[in-house]
């Protein structure tokens, strides 16, 4: 067992924030492959700038993911790079595309919620992601998405309303 004293701090940070960042990256990306690339690139960029301090605000990585996602959408060269890299990776591990953990006792309900979230519009999804799992304030969400605070709050309320109506329509 390696001595935890010599464990790089980013691993601890990533173990804590990685899941919510990956969720947001999945929401932003077109597919699961791009999501991981987005997360990796965004995290490495931010950690190289601020990592020496030992603590990085997750909001900065959320913001970087979103900006990179826009770049990815504009450039199609990502596909070529992804195909080159994918040859070296274990495909078995990368197949999993569930956005959330699915414990057996709550699997059915979690699947309903996950499905309902994915039915939301992209604008509503990202606001819900940042608020519920990103644990950002509306002010931070506004800065991350480049929208006013009130717009962020308003979108969130609408998103929850839509989510509720989607869940009501779903067969139980």
């Amino acid at each position: 067992m390696p001595d935890p004293t010599f464990e790089p701090l980013w691993k601890e940070w990533f173990a804590k924030h990685g899941p919510r960042l990956l969720l947001f990256a999945r929401q932003q990306a077109r597919n699961d492959y791009d999501a991981e690339d987005l997360l990796q690139e965004a995290f490495v960029r931010i950690w190289r700038i601020y990592g020496h301090t030992g603590e990085v605000a997750p909001r900065l990585v959320f913001q970087a993911i979103r900006r990179l996602a826009i770049d990815y959408a504009r450039r199609d060269i990502r596909r070529q790079r992804r195909e080159e890299k994918s040859e070296d990776l274990n495909d078995q591990e990368r197949i999993s595309a569930d956005w959330f953990e699915m414990p057996i006792e709550k699997q059915e309900r979690n699947e309903q919620l996950s499905s309902a979230i994915q039915e939301l519009s992209s604008k509503h999804q990202e606001v819900v992601m940042l608020k519920v799992w990103g644990e950002l304030t509306f002010d931070e969400i506004g800065k991350t998405l480049g929208i006013p605070l009130h717009t962020a709050a308003s979108r969130y309320r609408h998103a929850l309303g839509n989510l509720k109506s989607i869940l009501t329509k779903q067969p139980k």
Partner: peptide
């Protein structure tokens, strides 16, 4: 709802991409 955890492969890729800079905060 708990977001799914990143894969080990992704963590390895990040570690490789960070290189020695990943150890600075240590």
């Amino acid at each position: 709802l708990s977001p799914a955890k990143p894969t080990t492969v992704l963590r390895q890729q990040i570690s490789k991409a960070l290189g020695p800079q990943g150890d600075l905060a240590l």
